[in-house]
Amino acid sequence: MNEAAFYFIAAGVCVFAVMAVTGRDIFHCALWLAMTLLSVAGIYFYLDAPFLGVIQILVYVGGIITLFVFAIKLTANIGYKSIRQTSKQWALALFITALLLCVLSRVFAAHPWAQTVLNVPAASIAQIGRSLMMNYAVPFEFMSVILLAAMVGAIVIGKDKR
């Protein structure tokens, strides 16, 4: 029963992801991407990581996809139009992804996967916060610097040039 639920959600992730990549209407693609990310959040909930699932929905669906949709609407001549699916270098891209698939599948096949689930206590939010602020304080602060740089860049690009 439980495993069936997992495969159901995983199949949803795959189907929606394919739809997001192959769709012709860019607004629909954004919606399929939202469905993909929601299904991934479903997997997190299934795996007993509600914090991760909640953050996934809040950040990706509530934030990023909404910004995507905003950008699509505010860009002239992009909605309702079928845009070419492939770039000029699709052959090269296909080659690289095929190579990556080969390497990854060999690694996955060679790896000795654990057959039993370790009894790991679920990480509480307090623990996550503590490790972010103590063990990983430097990377955490570094992330905020990157975000700040991105924000400044966005403002510079969006500034009225006179």
Binding site: A34, L38, P50, V54, V61, G62, T66, I125
Partner: peptide, 16 residues
């Protein structure tokens, strides 16, 4: 155990 955050995140789907 993430109740408050859960409500905020699911209601943010409504925007879409």
């Amino acid at each position: 155990n993430v109740g408050v955050l859960y409500v905020c995140s699911v209601t943010s789907i409504c925007v879409l």
